[in-house]
Amino acid sequence: MFPKNAWYVACTPDEIDAKPLGRTICNERIAFYRGEEGRVAAVEDFCPHRGAALSKGQVCEGKLVCGYHGLVMGCDGKTVSMPGQRVQGFPAIRTYPVVEKHGFVWVWPGDAAQADPAKIHPLEWAESPDWAYGGGLYHVQCDYRLMVDNLMDLTHETYVHATSIGQKEIDESPVSTKTVGDRVVTSRFMNGVMPPPFWRANLRGNHLADDVPVDRWQVCHFIPPSHIMIEVGVAHAGKGGYDADPKDKVSSIVVDFLTPETETSMWYFWGMARNFNPRDTNLTAQIREGQARVFAEDTEVLEAQQRNLLLYPNRRLLMLNIDAGGVQARRIIDRLVAAEQPQKIAA
């Protein structure tokens, strides 16, 4: 269903600055908090005393204090103390590898011995002052793979996002799909089209005319286990399109971190990174607001789709050429999941 030997975005740092956070990731119930010296810690959200949720407690001097009977838990999963009790024989609870990087908190829900922080893929936009980022989080009631399908095929924009980023030329433009190792890339280029409302606003944000034809592009990158970065943008027509000089275009990266919660729910960390006018905070807020509406539309469609699939589990779905990106991404996910299963020994 989902690979566990992988890094997933668990939360944003501000979610755990004031108190612990309980979050289920890949069916693992985890409590996140800031331990000693402000370092992020992640432990099983289960108090060994009576099974209470540790995330409902508080942090005191870098230790997680259970809100039920005051048991004090260390970052290593061992009980430190409990009022009126000897705790030497208390069993340790599970801990999870956790890293704070690129402006997010990442967790490894699988085999801790395989958790190498170097496996977190580089994000240039997250480390450079030449980029601005604004985003948010949605809790979506659907299989995360449905969102992978959605983002690797942007044909739906014409219909789901008709008032913001959709336009008929999306349907009319061919899509190319390629797989390189464990990554999938789908690309669509539209030349000499009028920009839709979202992109007209961005052209104005970069002091460019918004009422002239543009060359538009969408390049979707699937990166295991379930991260999708989409290069998007428009340039004044005839100026080079994707490769146009920055003064003639607006380009961004749509950021999609899809973190499975259960088989039918997910945490969707979404946003947009841009490298034009990065210090314009009003523009960042404007883009974020526009994106929030777009992704809310996706959420509505996918949750309804998930309900249908649960009602009709035996219905066979059609696969079209526009589905190639999602199909290839799912094959990689399936391969990673299969690799984690115990190997059967032949008799």
Rank of each mutant, 00 (worst) to 15 (best):
V214Q: 00
L208A: 03
G166R: 03
W199G: 01
V180G: 03
H161K: 14
H207I: 04
K178T: 13
Y159C: 08
G166T: 07
H207P: 09
K168W: 07
K178C: 09
F189M: 10
P195K: 08
P174E: 04
F198W: 09
P174T: 00
H161P: 09
P174D: 00
T163H: 13
M194Q: 15
K178V: 11
I170E: 00
R188L: 09
M194P: 09
M194D: 10
R204L: 12
G166N: 07
E157S: 15
A162G: 09
H207E: 14
K168M: 09
K178F: 10
D171T: 07
R216Y: 10
A201Q: 14
Y159E: 14
H207F: 10
P213A: 04
S176T: 15
D171F: 13
S187N: 12
Q167S: 11
S173D: 06
N206P: 04
T186Y: 09
F198R: 08
V212I: 07
H161L: 12
H207V: 08
V184G: 07
D211H: 03
A209M: 06
V175K: 01
S176N: 11
A162M: 06
Y159P: 09
P213F: 02
W199N: 02
D171Q: 13
V184C: 06
E157C: 13
V184E: 05
E157D: 15
V184N: 05
W199Y: 14
A162T: 13
R188H: 09
M194H: 10
A162R: 05
V180F: 09
E169D: 15
A201F: 12
P213Y: 02
D171R: 15
S164Y: 12
V214A: 01
N202Y: 13
W199M: 01
V212D: 01
P174N: 02
I165F: 13
N191S: 11
F198I: 03
K168A: 13
S187C: 11
V175Y: 04
N206S: 13
K178M: 10
M190N: 01
S173P: 04
S173I: 00
